[in-house]
Amino acid sequence: MLHEYRKKTTIKAEQFDGSDEMMKKYGLKKFGWKGFIKVPNSKKRFRLDAPMIIEAGDWLIENDKAEVDVLSDEDFRRTYERCD
């Protein structure tokens, strides 16, 4: 019989808002009129498969290896459910 399951692990994530504070925290800089890119030698390590351009509204997810992954708002909401 087929059942539905939810991921059991919890994650720490925050939605990127494009603020100067978050750009500094994640080592990003403005790119174009609505995008942001990773600054070389930033303190945060992004996963190699993370997108090059990050937009306000994307989700920044830090894993247990202190690597940051990026998901669009649509993909994040499809994959995760808030539990706090």
Rank of each mutant, 00 (worst) to 15 (best):
C83A: 15
E74V: 00
W33C: 04
D64C: 00
D20S: 07
T9A: 09
K43W: 13
H3P: 13
I61R: 06
M52S: 13
F46I: 15
E62I: 03
K29C: 12
E74D: 03
D75G: 10
I37Y: 13
D73Y: 11
F16S: 09
K12E: 11
E81S: 01
S19A: 00
L60C: 08
I61G: 09
K12D: 13
V39A: 00
D58E: 05
S19P: 02
I37G: 12
A56Q: 09
Y5V: 07
G18Y: 12
N63I: 01
S42W: 05
F16A: 07
M23A: 01
A50C: 12
E62C: 00
Y80E: 02
I11N: 04
K8L: 15
R78Q: 10
F46R: 11
K12Y: 06
Y80V: 06
P51K: 11
A66D: 08
F76E: 02
S72E: 08
L60A: 14
M52L: 03
G18D: 04
R77F: 09
I54A: 03
K12I: 11
K7G: 10
R6D: 11
N63G: 06
G27F: 05
D84V: 15
I61C: 07
K29F: 13
P40C: 08
D58K: 10
D73V: 04
T79M: 12
L28T: 03
E55N: 14
C83W: 15
L60K: 12
E74S: 02
K24E: 09
M52A: 03
L28A: 02
K65L: 10
Y26N: 13
E62H: 07
M52G: 07
G27Q: 10
A56N: 02
K30N: 04
K34I: 15
L60Q: 05
K44S: 01
R78I: 06
N63K: 01
L2W: 06
M23F: 05
T79H: 06
F36Q: 13
A56S: 02
Y80P: 05
V68Q: 12
L28R: 09
E81L: 13
F31S: 14
T10G: 01
L48D: 05
K8H: 15
L28P: 11
S19L: 08
A56R: 09
N41T: 05
K29E: 14
W59E: 10
